[in-house]
Write a protein that binds this DNA or RNA. Structure first.
Lengths: 343, 343
DNA sequence: ACCCCGAGTCGAAACGCTTCGACTTTCTTT
DNA sequence: AAAGAAAGTCGAAGCGTTTCGACTCGGGGT
């Protein structure tokens, strides 16, 4: 609770010298600096946050808006929040949480009262109302996820299309001709943003590679274990030799269970590759190759962009799609001799 | 971005009058008030957060520390965070998120720089390091959860002991004599706080009621579906006529699956009651009676206490244990005639 | 006619910091 | 030896509020 005046007095210098010693914005004599540091330690001084916000033009706070919709996958979401907080902290920023209705009302509020330097948008929906809001306020805003209408916005996300295409092409290269795609719950294709993008991309790449593609989802409104399993069973019955998975970890497990029960093994009998998973597919019962959605990657970049927006020239609006990185666990190989090609 | 000076000019009054009109701390003439309100609307004025913190002695921000340990159950945790944010917002407070290592370092930091008015502690461990920290700083701190050493701390939580006892006594009243307790994963009994309390209380109450009690857990380090199911199977084999569940929603489902597979029905053949669940046990395949852990209840109270701590007299240190409320879904009845009592 | 009180308003002093301009010293350059 | 430049320091001006004390003006009590 000591203030800069007390520190200055204790060190026998003026308050401006203390300020400069701490910020390093002007040179301070080594000896003076030492006395100041000592006074700071002795008094347990820490610059008052409010005063700092007022005097400097920075609050050192980012808002994080997250509506937390019903179908939000909690573990994944938490990874994003955590990744954002960690990334922000690396640059001396704190995270102010705006959830629920505050995701919108709060956004307007903190933009108006200058509580935050920038806003990070999580849990982005295709028709997200925060898009319009972002255009109205002049607090820099970065979307982690891509809404349908993203004109003029700064958005960061995994390049899902590229990831999906790569997954398919990996299977094509391995010699598969008939593959199955197991997507998320049907509802996700409307309320969320990337599932449709993934599915479309898978479809296109399969066509380009001249492969047969069979589609399935893992439930109607939410992923159920049974639906996921049924999807896998149906596809196997239909003679696919490989799966592209784009779904939750539970669904991955269900697919593996079905494969296992049939006495099939991965990758000898069935190849599997996962797209956009944000959990560790290497620690599944059977480790699975993956083109993961890495929260840290998106969030780090989002924070960088937010920071950049505070500088002289704002970053150009537009999509920043992160190239997918393949993680290999040995779940992909050539299809079994007898079951290659057509059924 | 307008400031109070511009509003004052627009309304033709001094800035102090504007301030009083907005805070209501001194009377302002109706006509003057109207002109000020109009100016505020026209200019889109919102008092600057930093200036407010400096001048007033309130920041209108609470810190929420949550280490997010490995075994934290994401959905439950998110409910708590959400409930806290909502409760805080009702009193015009925002939430600053301190996760990961920042749960501790950040606590010290925000206490030192006065960024927050109070600190709310989530995800409390039995030997939580934040306990010591809380004693050192003078920012009011409220624990949502009860650490082992809680001397001098303000803690809020469900009265797990009471809930556990009530669950057992409900079964006793229904006529059961041999019941099974299915707890959380073994690891939870060391890293988390309330599981041991629940188990002890169940044991004591069973003894008091003269019932036979059999114990089981749902895994070693983390809850697995199979372990939960096996636990249920073992207990049924041992002839229990009722279950007290204290575990995750997946484990609830597993228990129900085992019961179902044996052709038994709830509550005719087996009674089930859940303790400390923070999900809706009414929307399980078979709705289950519950003595739930309600995040809103704990978080609302925690926020009230934090607020109180900012007033003249700080709330007295000590535990605030919330009385459990039983939610009935019809999963408890008398034991089947042939299987009552001893095996 | 007097005083007092409350309503209504204003000016100015904090709040604790950052930062600009100016000043003194001490070195380098030419 | 004169002229700069750079280092090092200080005072003071903000930043945008809140809040205290003081002032004015009517209306009631005496």
């Amino acid at each position: 609770m000591a203030n800069i005046t007390e520190v200055a007095a204790a060190a026998g210098v003026s308050i401006s010298t203390v300020s400069y010693a701490l910020s390093g914005k002007r040179p301070v004599a080594p000896d003076t600096r030492r006395r100041i540091e000592m006074a700071v330690r002795d008094l347990g001084y820490s610059p008052n946050a409010g005063a700092r916000m007022l005097a400097g033009r920075r609050t050192q706070i980012f808002a994080l808006t997250e509506p937390l919709r019903r179908d939000t996958h909690a573990p994944t979401h938490m990874s994003f929040v955590l990744a954002t907080a960690v990334a922000a902290r690396r640059h001396d920023y704190d995270i102010l949480l705006l959830t629920d209705e505050q995701a919108q009302a709060g956004m307007r509020r903190v933009a108006a009262n200058g509580l935050v330097d920038a806003i990070l948008v999580l849990d982005v929906a295709p028709d997200d109302p925060r898009v319009e809001l972002a255009r109205q306020i002049d607090t820099p805003t970065v979307f982690i996820g891509v809404p349908d209408d993203n004109e003029g916005l700064v958005c960061v996300d995994l390049d899902f299309e590229a990831a999906a295409a790569e997954a398919v092409s990996v299977l094509a290269d391995a010699g598969h001709h008939r593959i199955g795609f197991i997507g998320q719950a049907d509802a996700a294709y409307e309320t969320s943003n990337f599932p449709p993008r993934v599915r479309r991309s898978v479809r296109e790449e399969a066509e380009r590679c001249g492969m047969e593609l069979l589609l399935a989802t893992t439930g109607t409104t939410r992923t159920t274990r049974e639906a996921a399993r049924r999807a896998a069973a149906d596809l196997l019955d239909a003679g696919v030799t490989a799966f592209v998975l784009h779904c939750l970890d539970e669904a991955h497990a269900s697919v593996l269970a079905e494969v296992d029960e049939r006495g099939l093994s991965v990758p000898e009998d069935v190849s599997i590759i996962s797209v956009g998973a944000s959990f560790d597919t290497g620690s599944l019962a059977t480790p699975i190759d993956s083109l993961p959605l890495v929260p840290e990657a998106s969030c780090d970049l989002a924070v960088e962009l937010a920071l950049e927006a505070l500088g002289d020239q704002r970053p150009e609006p537009g999509l920043r799609l992160l190239a997918p990185t393949r993680v290999v666990h040995g779940s992909v190989s050539t299809p079994p001799a007898g079951r290659t090609g057509t059924v």
